[in-house]
Design a protein around this nucleic acid. Sequence first.
DNA 1: CTTGACCTTCCAGTAGCTGGAGGCCCTATC
DNA 2: GATAGGGCCTCCAGCTACTGGAAGGTCAAG
Lengths: 130, 130
Amino acid sequence: MNIGDVAARAHLPAKTIRYYEEIGLITPARGQNGYRAFSETDLHKLVFIGRARSLGFTIEECRALLALYEDATRASADVKRIAHDHLRQIEAKIAELQAMHKTLGDLVQACAGDQRPDCPILKGLASGPV
Amino acid sequence: MNIGDVAARAHLPAKTIRYYEEIGLITPARGQNGYRAFSETDLHKLVFIGRARSLGFTIEECRALLALYEDATRASADVKRIAHDHLRQIEAKIAELQAMHKTLGDLVQACAGDQRPDCPILKGLASGPV
DNA sequence: CTTGACCTTCCAGTAGCTGGAGGCCCTATC
DNA sequence: GATAGGGCCTCCAGCTACTGGAAGGTCAAG
């Protein structure tokens, strides 16, 4: 398979796949013409990485997950720990965004949003709570 | 005021303040010794920017808000529109994270997390829904 | 034989800082 | 007056995870 084919099948841009090779996540073979020649295994790995990325795992976490994925003797506890840590991070991020939403929502609520210059949003940003 | 003083008062690293000057958010005066000499107005602006950033506004949004903040004839509607758009983005991000959390949470739930290699998380990443 | 799609590499840029090197300035103490 | 320390300066490089574009090789169709 050429890069265009895997890109379509893995739902990833070709550029991204080249980048993943550059950082060593995958190592596709090469044809005589210099084109990357992807195996089914390469494709599976790319799908795996794409899904992990879409769940918010960092590249380094993907690398760790991929190593476990390829290690037939792994303990599922190792995988679960990574996933669990990541869940905690997602929760923290959600909480942070909800706090922002509350604060900003209150300010927006208080703002008339008309032609007058008086604006509680700007006042809140200038002197509100840290 | 030297940069260390404003940094402490605005709760921002000195490095960040220099960066804000570099990108033109603030333009502090300079003393004969070459040190930045911050006015109270500079400090207020930095506090303003710091709060806006902590609410997740991008630098460019901060720039726009700052311009409105300094424009005594602004319409509060202009501010409200920016803030409202940003609220929508926060909501979208929260929804995205909640979807991730649900998907990953289900996988983690299904994983025994013991010494055996069988792992629903890896299986889900390899072949689950896109 | 040419056209156009596809592939290659390499360089640069995105956001928003952050770290570090190398060096000047200022104050205090001996 | 010398020195030690801290704070300040600029400039360069790096972080994440790509993304865009230029310049050029390759391949199949007409």
